[in-house]
Simulated scan of single mutants.
Amino acid sequence: MNLPESWMEEITAPGDNDEDEQRTYTKLLTALGDYRRRHHRAGPDTLGPRPPGLDAEEWDHLTDAIDLYTHARIQSRLEQLQARTATTRAALLAPTSPLRRQPPPGTNSPGHQPPTR
């Protein structure tokens, strides 16, 4: 089995249970690998410097895709950590503890609307 190229390690891989995310990750790596092959890029820099002319548009598109994918992975991971922290806090703290995060009064009631100006 071939080891992944060093630049692949920079892009966070999805979890094993999310098939949609795995497909997105595979499509991204395939597109990046194809670009690198066609433009004779090698080394740890994923896409190399921004090329001049028409190739710059593809470079921009792939760079945006990397950024969006990375942002989505980080956001997903943060949401998982926040949920786990809230669950742990709720399990460890008594319901009356001042450390337990309580929503401001009235914001969770049915029909509550934020104040208008």
Rank of each mutant, 00 (worst) to 15 (best):
L47S: 03
L54Q: 12
T12S: 06
D45W: 07
R23K: 15
D18W: 05
L68Q: 14
P98K: 03
G33C: 01
M1G: 12
D60E: 11
P51V: 02
P98N: 01
H61R: 10
R37P: 01
I66V: 15
N108G: 08
R38G: 02
Q82H: 14
S6Q: 12
E21W: 08
P105T: 01
R84N: 14
T96E: 08
P105N: 01
N2A: 13
L3Y: 13
R50A: 15
Q102C: 06
G106P: 05
W59V: 09
L54P: 12
E21H: 04
S109L: 11
D55M: 13
D64C: 04
T70I: 00
A31C: 02
L93F: 07
L92N: 02
P103I: 00
P105V: 03
A56M: 02
D55V: 02
E57R: 12
N17D: 15
T12K: 07
E19V: 14
T85V: 10
A13I: 03
W59S: 13
Q80A: 15
R23F: 12
L62S: 01
I74E: 10
A83I: 11
P98E: 01
P104V: 00
P105H: 06
A42V: 14
Q113W: 07
G48S: 04
S97L: 01
P49C: 12
T24K: 15
R41F: 05
E79G: 14
D64G: 08
Q22T: 04
R41L: 10
Q22A: 03
P52E: 11
T26V: 10
H71C: 06
D18G: 00
Q102M: 11
S109A: 09
D67V: 10
T12R: 07
G33L: 00
R23S: 07
A83Q: 15
K27P: 01
L54D: 14
T107S: 07
Q102G: 04
P98A: 02
T26S: 06
R117K: 13
A31V: 00
I74F: 04
E10S: 13
G106R: 05
G43K: 11
Q22N: 09
Y35N: 05
R77A: 11
E5I: 05
H39W: 04
D64A: 09
L78Q: 14
Y25N: 00
D34M: 04
G43V: 05
A42R: 15
T26M: 10
Q113L: 13
M8S: 08
P104I: 02
A42K: 14
H61D: 10
T24L: 15
S109R: 09
T24V: 10
G111K: 05
T24H: 13
L32W: 03
R37Y: 10
A83W: 15
A31D: 06
P110K: 06
R84T: 09
S97Y: 02
H71A: 09
Q75P: 03
E10H: 12
T107N: 02
D60F: 07
T26A: 13
S6V: 15
E5G: 08
E21S: 15
L99A: 08
Q102L: 09
D60R: 07
P105L: 02
T85H: 12
G43M: 06
T107Q: 03
N108S: 10
P114T: 00
T63V: 14
A83P: 11
